[in-house]
């Protein structure tokens, strides 16, 4: 079995999602069905991987100095600020 309630809780923690008990009950069999279906991929013969569907070449631009987004604009959507900086929760 690929996924059960305990595994789902661990994946949710890694995903920064708090799942309610009802969500855990609802999602576990749904995700199990999907992952079991994905297991078909085991039979895929070895091949090169295609990260993109078409060939992507590096496209370089001139190394020019340009103005970046002005601080006022960068902070325009930030609700909680302090002296022109984003105010966030504790990290340590």
């Amino acid at each position: 079995m690929l996924i059960n309630q305990e595994v789902l809780k661990r994946v949710a923690k890694n995903s920064r999602l708090n799942l309610s008990e009802s969500e855990i009950g609802e999602f576990t069999p749904q995700l199990r069905d999907v992952l079991e279906f994905f297991e078909k991929l085991k039979k895929v013969p070895q091949a090169e991987v295609s990260i993109h569907p078409v060939s992507i070449e590096n496209v370089y631009r001139e190394d020019l100095v340009e103005n970046s987004l002005h601080r006022d604009e960068a902070l325009k959507n930030v609700k909680y600020q302090n002296n022109g900086r984003i105010r966030g929760p504790r990290t340590i």
């Binding site: 690929l2 996924i3 595994v7 789902l8 994946v11 949710a12 890694n14 995903s15 999602l17 799942l19 969500e23 999602f27 749904q30 995700l31 999907v34 992952l35 994905f38």
Partner: peptide, 11 residues
Amino acid sequence: AKRRILLGTFA
């Protein structure tokens, strides 16, 4: 959205 985040993180 939650389901897809969970599936992607699992895989």
